[in-house]
Design a protein around this nucleic acid. Structure first.
Lengths: 193, 193, 193, 193
DNA sequence: TATGAATGAGCGTTCATTCAT
DNA sequence: AATGAATGAACGCTCATTCAT
């Protein structure tokens, strides 16, 4: 009954996402997540070894999907410019359309132990590498400057995207995030000049 | 006796910075900070209302200094280009030369409650506004593109700088951060092209 | 199907003995015993009402055999002296040759609830009564002092034997227990003088 | 204020003794002991590192006194016979007059972890050694048999005394324990013959 | 009979904060 | 102002037991 097992696993992840988004990281006791999922406290420990494992899985499952979507889109892009635009588009649109996920990943999960942050880092790493690949492709295509430091630039781009999302959230989502895609990509491509 | 009062206040902040840098956010109990500062636990509550207030003050005092330095330098800069370079230089060099502060602000203080993060946000806001002013100045000087979205671009720049510092820390400080200033400024000014 | 029923019953007891001997009383969860026995957790509750019942049954079955052996031997003994020697011999040799049983009865099962200890007491009672019978027989034979308090003396003898075994176990079984039979019986028979 | 510190330490030990005697080992939660002592739960952890430490201390403090009393009495005894009688007398009378202590040491504390039992063993060891010294003294005085195995015999004596006390407790203290001293000592001295 | 997923009560321990001195 | 002993709320996790299949 793998499907049934997965059902409950998904149920708990879904509940955790909702509870954390509503109550914050520190206000999300196991008992609250269990109640939201409609299972007993102990049941959670049949699917997750420790409380932190829920959060790590949440990150891996949800962001794993996102990163798969990134890879797919990038493959379909003919140019590096287009690929970078795709990345930015997906990054903004996915988080805009899934506010709970956005809130949890940008705000709540960062308030966690070093151990968890390392796990999160591992999930984010492929994403940053994807940006790096796009940069390399752009250089090969002679579309991007050949003297770019790809290791540094990928961080500047990721950091910019991340901050844009966080700021949008903290502002109370008073404006459209996806509407920023063009200007954002333009800044990355053309810089300030 | 204001000076004497300030003495102990500073003593506690200094101790908190050291203890958090050494033991991490979760390993920094009031009792440990008090011992490091050479005062009794209860004494801390004569200077700070809650534990979080120590952290907020830490951020305000130390980053306040930094931001004052930013403002000073920017005023002395004749062009927006130069001002942006100055900001980046100070951002990287100050945190590179004060690893405890870097570690605490980039890594440890982020594992805190929403309330604290809002307070931190307030401290950071003037810095982001400073970047905004530079952008506006650059547009006036016709050095920067007139169609820049300054509200968005300031975030992309701040996020890029922030991520560069965090990544450098997590990597174990295996390379020079200040050596990245040129490439970073160049990316912001010229973009990928 | 009584035999089949008994098979599984025995299987579980055997598994419990092994698991407790290997993991100690507190490390012996039902799930561990079930796995060792090759049955499901729930199956155990078809044969035993509560976890403690396994332990009580373990004691009854295994020590019951021992006590039967005692009775047999005593019946075959012509004198009380000889009977007492037999008791001591069997007590020491059986536990020496069955270390798991010794460990579980002397060390692990004593860390249990009052309820269990009462049940264990009931199992031990016939043994203590056997010693009493031997004492009475000795008095009748005019081999033992007529002024012996048999109720008290049986305890002194049982306690002595019990402590000798426990001490031997705790010492790490560095010496032979059965080699102590002679001296032990001699002490009981002649006292210190 | 060493005296004040000791006051609360004693208060907690006293409360623990009472609570364990009344509720058994497993029914004695920290919160119950704290309430009985009239302190907060957390206060207990200012005086004891772990819950088990209360029990170990209880054993050490109370039985330490007892063993000191033993040593004192033995020193005052002119002969080994007399010393052995003294030991038996104190053993029985002290536990008879302090039923809570008897109950806790004979019944409850034995249901504890191996770690605690080792600690208890260390407290009991000097007592067993004391019995050994008496035996050696008796041999020197040519009052006891020269062929006694003192290492074995001390266990037979201690085990006998221990069992006599436990049995008296379990019986519901329906008879006088101290009234058994004469018969007990007589058994040890003269054996069954 | 047999299974094993699900249950949920139960508790030791930490630590920010208070307050009598 | 300063102390530091005392407080007590808060919670993750285990595991004996149940019950739908």
């Amino acid at each position: 009954m793998a499907s049934r097992k997965m059902e409950k696993y998904e149920l708990i992840l879904e509940a955790a996402l909702k509870v954390i988004a509503e109550n914050g990281f520190h206000g999300s006791q196991i008992s609250k997540i269990a109640k939201e999922a409609g299972v007993a406290d102990g049941t959670i420990y049949l699917y997750f070894k420790k409380k932190e494992d829920i959060l790590i899985s949440l990150f891996q499952e949800r962001l794993g999907d996102l990163i798969a979507a990134f890879n797919e889109s990038v493959k379909e892009s003919s140019t590096a410019d287009e690929a970078l635009r795709k990345v930015c588009e997906i990054h903004f649109s996915e988080l805009e359309s899934n506010v709970n996920l956005a809130y949890v990943t940008q705000i709540e999960l960062r308030q966690s132990s070093l151990e968890l942050r390392v796990a999160i880092g591992n999930v984010v790493k492929p994403y940053i590498q994807l940006i790096e690949h796009i940069l390399e492709k752009g250089i090969q295509e002679k579309s991007f400057r050949p003297d770019l430091d790809v290791k540094l630039t990928r961080l500047l781009i990721f950091g910019g995207l991340d901050e844009a999302v966080t700021s949008w959230l903290i502002s109370g989502r008073k404006y459209s995030l996806t509407a920023q895609v063009d200007k954002t990509v333009e800044f990355f491509l053309k810089g300030l000049k």
